[in-house]
Amino acid sequence: NQASVVANQLIPINTALTLAMMRSEVVTPVGIPAEDIPRLVSMQVNRAVPLGTTLMPDMVKGYA
C-alpha cells in the first residue's frame, strides 16, 4: 500500500510546509505520495489543513 502525506498538526492557510508538519501514513483515499515530502518543504497550503488530514495535490500551491 502506498503511504500518503498526512498533516501532523493544524496547518493554517498560506503556511509554508516544514518536515515537522507532515508524516507518512497509509490512508484511503490516497493523497500526495510520502516520497514527495522533501519536495513539499517550503510549499504553501492554500487552505487550513486540520491535524490528521491527508494532503491532496490541490491543497498545496504549485504542487499539482
Rank of each mutant, 00 (worst) to 15 (best):
R23K: 04
I32H: 01
T15S: 08
A48Q: 14
Y63C: 04
I13E: 14
V6R: 04
A3I: 11
P29Q: 07
T15R: 05
G52L: 06
A20S: 15
T54M: 04
A7R: 01
T53D: 09
N8M: 07
Q9K: 08
M59S: 07
A7P: 02
I11K: 00
A20E: 15
G31W: 02
N8E: 13
M59F: 08
S24I: 15
V5I: 07
R39M: 15
V26Y: 10
T54K: 05
I37L: 11
Q2A: 11
T53E: 08
V27E: 03
N46Q: 15
N8V: 11
L10S: 12
E35W: 06
D58M: 14
E25N: 13
I11L: 13
P57A: 12
E35C: 15
L17K: 00
R23E: 06
P33M: 10
G62A: 15
P29C: 15
T53F: 09
M21G: 03
P12F: 05
I37W: 03
V5R: 00
Q2H: 12
V49P: 01
N8A: 12
R47S: 12
V30M: 11
P50C: 09
I37V: 14
S42E: 07
T18L: 07
A48K: 05
N46C: 06
P12R: 08
R39P: 02
S4W: 02
N1D: 15
S42A: 12
N1E: 15
R39Y: 14
Q2V: 08
P33A: 09
G62I: 03
T18Q: 15
A7S: 09
G52F: 07
E35I: 06
V6N: 01
E25P: 00
P12A: 08
A48N: 12
N8Q: 08
L55I: 15
G52W: 07
L17P: 03
D58Q: 08
M21E: 02
I32M: 04
Q44G: 06
L51H: 13
N14Y: 10
T28G: 05
E35A: 12
L17G: 01
N46R: 11
P57T: 12
M59Y: 14
R39F: 12
A3D: 14
V6F: 02
V60G: 01
S4F: 03
Q2E: 15
G31M: 02
G62M: 09
D36Y: 08
L17S: 00
T53C: 04
E35L: 08
N8W: 10
A3E: 14
L40T: 02
N8K: 05
K61N: 08
D36G: 04
A7N: 02
S24Q: 09
R47Q: 12
R47I: 15
A20R: 10
A34L: 04
V45G: 01
N8T: 09
D58W: 08
V41P: 03
K61Q: 07
M43R: 08
V49C: 03
V5S: 03
D36E: 14
R23S: 14
V26I: 12
V49L: 09
